[in-house]
């Protein structure tokens, strides 16, 4: 390492680069992508074959623990992946500083909020508390 470097030893050893987050986003996006390969296949068939089949059938399907777990994992991991992806899209295409910051914040809040609503709803159905 050249002696003219302005980076501190700590900064270098932490390996987080100038953006101070290293490969965290990149890694999380790949990890969620890999998890979504089996999850999206399972969820498409579960959800697709239940859609339009009536309320009783839907409650019965997602009352099964494996179906409920698949739906919960798909929603949780899916929204996590969506949030990571939308962040890149906002960073790349929204140039107004105020608008970009507003959208970046809304992205995190809405993705977490919707994921929570989804997971809670599936749990409520699976535990037999559907209204």
């Amino acid at each position: 390492m050249a002696s003219s470097s302005f980076r501190t030893d700590y900064n270098r050893v932490a390996g987080l680069g100038s953006a101070r987050e290293g490969a965290g986003h990149w890694w999380a996006q790949r990890l969620t992508a890999i998890a979504l390969i089996p999850l999206s296949i399972a969820f498409v068939f579960l959800f697709g074959s239940t859609l339009g089949e009536g309320r009783e059938a839907a409650i019965e399907t997602f009352g099964h623990p494996l179906a409920a777990l698949t739906a919960i994992l798909f929603i949780a991991v899916g929204f996590s992946h969506l949030q990571l992806g939308l962040r890149i899209v906002i960073e790349d295409y929204v140039h107004g500083r105020k608008l970009a910051f507003t959208l970046l914040i809304l992205n995190v809040l809405l993705c977490w909020g919707l994921a929570a609503v989804g997971v809670f709803s599936v749990a409520r159905i699976a535990f037999g508390y559907a209204g």
Partner: peptide, 30 residues
């Protein structure tokens, strides 16, 4: 397609929420 699926994600959550709330809400969403 990634951005478009944000709409799909909202629809899926709405469907589960409606299913957990009442038959009327479910009829609307489904």
């Amino acid at each position: 397609t990634g951005v478009g699926m944000a709409l799909g994600a909202i629809l899926v959550v709405w469907w589960f929420l409606a299913l957990s709330i009442s038959p009327g809400q479910f009829r609307l969403a489904d």
